[in-house]
Design a protein around this nucleic acid. Sequence first.
DNA 1: CCAAAAGTGTTCTCAATACACCCATGT
DNA 2: ACATGGGTGTATTGAGAACACTTTTGG
Lengths: 249, 249
Amino acid sequence: MLAETTLNQTTPELIPNAVLAVDVVLFTIVRKAPLSEALQVLLVHQGDQSGHGRWILPGVLVRSSETFAEAARRALAEKAGLDAATWYLDQLATYGEPARDSRGRVASIAHLALVRSDDLTLRPGIDVGATEWCPVKRVEERVLAFDHAEMIRAGVQRIRSKVRYSWVAFQLLNEKFTIPELRAVYAAILDPGLARLSSGNFKKAMRPLFESGVLQVVGRATTGRRGRPGDLYRFAGPVTGTRERELPW
Amino acid sequence: MLAETTLNQTTPELIPNAVLAVDVVLFTIVRKAPLSEALQVLLVHQGDQSGHGRWILPGVLVRSSETFAEAARRALAEKAGLDAATWYLDQLATYGEPARDSRGRVASIAHLALVRSDDLTLRPGIDVGATEWCPVKRVEERVLAFDHAEMIRAGVQRIRSKVRYSWVAFQLLNEKFTIPELRAVYAAILDPGLARLSSGNFKKAMRPLFESGVLQVVGRATTGRRGRPGDLYRFAGPVTGTRERELPW
DNA sequence: CCAAAAGTGTTCTCAATACACCCATGT
DNA sequence: ACATGGGTGTATTGAGAACACTTTTGG
């Protein structure tokens, strides 16, 4: 068994022994929802004639000439009618317990995706009964197939970590946004209690952004609510940038 | 939550479309080496009759009934004669560009492993020409096959991140160790200049460990070098624990 | 005794928080 | 007018870094 088929130039072909799949944990911030439920994840309901459908993450099998990222974006397109071509997308982890799927050895490469705003139209794809945004706090109530609940946990952990040392938060905002909206994103992801932090202190935490000029004022928000409307900003920096010092929250 | 069994009778089998492999980025700290080269990674040389061997990470194909972690430990056993049964092991990322391997679609799940001390005997396995510890600083000089150089970069990034908010550093030390040895691990992974930090400040950074009692004094080191020998400590806590506050280094 | 390394305590600095105050809008 | 929320500045606290000092070993 030591003479197993390993890397060997004389072997022109390797025999496939597994099925590759991708699943996508797509997060968004729903502004209308209360802060504690603003962070939501996209779930699709597997259509089933017997009525015994189940909730799963959008996912597809990887095609032979396709990268994982391409497959992940295709999953969002085919399962929910979303054009994720330009969205933030990152590999999370790969799940492939031997007994994970009775139909064969399946390895699913979970991905994390983020989308701005919530005025998207979900269009259930083929073999999909329904699509919905589910507050992360309430995922426990849903019965998710496979290890998709675990994937969501990993996704939450990842975005909580990323938001503290990188600028991914702007992936969840529109082109123009106010500082309170930005604070809401951080509060929804990290801690609802963060909203109680004074506005001045929050802006101080974002100081490196202002100093480097990647946050530019582009006007004043038109308000519908009470109180003074906030200044509108635009994020002009690369999302791949990271802070030198992690946020303390 | 696993063990999917009876839900999709219409498709009893999925046709395998890829080959699953694991590769292991195994780090250790070599005490004899200078600090800047103390962090080393295990490389194996693919034996080749033509003499055109190349350096790669230890890896194997995943067996059908095997978890990724099991396959990763087996890779260390088969390629380098190492018994990694109890070693720290963590999934890094999965690499599977369509054109990654000309012999077919291969997805390799890279893993990060850590091993205490360097008094291990490497025993080159079958179809392995040689095994060696390579200082991470000098990996650039080696020509690594596939995307293994990228895997090592990801491994370095991961361990640098982990060491700042978790207790993985103790995985690289023996059962008993001194504070200066612990500082050497941090310096080797994060920044050699860290060794210039005063001992008091380093111990202050480790204060949460002392206060929670997971670092216990077990004696005094027997010295061979100059100067006062350090106190010997034992780490009694779970490696999975994390600090509430990340290290500033 | 001296140099080197380990360990302890104190001071200084700076960043994160708390808080007080001003501005703009809707009711 | 005033309540509500956005924005700015100042004071206070606490953690990290610098440094002085003691302890223990080898030469």
